[in-house]
Simulated scan of single mutants.
Amino acid sequence: MTRGTTLPAHRLPYLPKPLDAFNAAPADEARALLQHCLRCLRWSRRVADHRPYPDLDSLLAAADEAAYDLSPSDLSEALAGETLPDLPEDTYSAAHMALSAAHAAYEARFGHAFVIYLGDTHPDESLDRILEAIRSRLTNDPEEERVIAAEELRRLARSRLGTCLRGATSHKAPAHGR
């Protein structure tokens, strides 16, 4: 029995990994992606200017390092771009009112949006975690709260970068944020 000619192997077009695409992107595109994740122009520029990154872990480390050098005005800029995490759709209206009231008290005390990294918090538990954190953090003095808010921003940024560049190779599982 003779067989017909063998068809050539099907080759998929080469699609660069997200990190490769990020490394090769024009500076303004890289900064735009970083601005979406980091919410601060100086932070975004600093990370973009140090491209290329050999792997996602290196990029995340650079973003962390740059976060520690944020000036108070940089931190204010990043905080201004934040909003409260979304609540599950079936959250009852009294919970929305409680969250709005707590957030208003927080903004009045500290002058910026409340930020929290929810990590692996189950969506059904997010409201309780947010309310508990706001109430607890309302007792902080403004400088102590700025340090905590900066750390939460850094964790959110890592999560967003990991999500945007999830196809990049990393030794760690991508973090899940709000």
Rank of each mutant, 00 (worst) to 15 (best):
R46G: 08
L84A: 09
C40Y: 01
A62Y: 06
L41D: 13
A48D: 13
S73G: 08
A95V: 14
S100H: 10
A95M: 10
E107S: 14
A78I: 04
M97F: 09
C37V: 02
H50D: 10
S58V: 14
A61N: 12
K17S: 14
S44H: 08
A63C: 09
L19H: 02
Y106G: 06
E65C: 04
L34D: 04
A102Q: 04
L84Q: 03
A102P: 02
A25S: 15
A67I: 01
L12N: 07
Y53C: 01
P26N: 10
R109M: 05
P26K: 07
L59H: 03
S73D: 14
W43S: 01
A94G: 00
R46S: 10
A62R: 14
S93P: 06
C40S: 15
A108K: 14
D69A: 15
L12F: 09
S100P: 00
R45I: 00
A102V: 06
L15Q: 15
E82S: 05
R11N: 07
P88L: 09
A104C: 08
Y14E: 14
H96Y: 07
P88W: 03
S93Q: 15
N23Q: 08
G81D: 05
D57Q: 07
L70F: 06
L19I: 12
S100A: 15
A25K: 07
A66K: 01
D20V: 06
A63R: 03
Y68H: 14
A24Y: 00
L60T: 05
H96Q: 10
H10T: 13
L75D: 03
D64C: 03
A24E: 15
D90N: 11
L99H: 03
D74F: 00
L41G: 09
A66E: 06
Y53M: 10
L15S: 11
L41M: 04
E29G: 08
A101M: 05
S58L: 12
R109D: 08
D86P: 01
A9C: 03
A94W: 09
L19E: 04
A66V: 02
E82V: 05
A95L: 11
A67M: 01
P8L: 07
S76M: 03
N23D: 05
E82M: 04
D28P: 04
T91S: 12
H50M: 12
E65I: 08
D28W: 07
A101H: 09
L38F: 05
A80I: 05
S71M: 01
R42D: 10
S58M: 01
D57V: 08
D74A: 00
M97D: 15
L75P: 01
R31T: 13
A102C: 10
S73C: 06
F22G: 01
R109Q: 15
E89G: 13
H103Y: 08
R109L: 08
P72A: 12
E82A: 10
H50N: 11
L87R: 10
L75M: 00
L70I: 03
G81L: 02
L41H: 10
Y53A: 09
L79R: 01
T83P: 00
H36S: 15
S100C: 04
L59E: 01
A21S: 12
D20H: 12
A104R: 13
P52N: 04
Y14N: 07
G81S: 09
P18G: 11
A62T: 13
L41R: 09
D74E: 11
A102E: 12
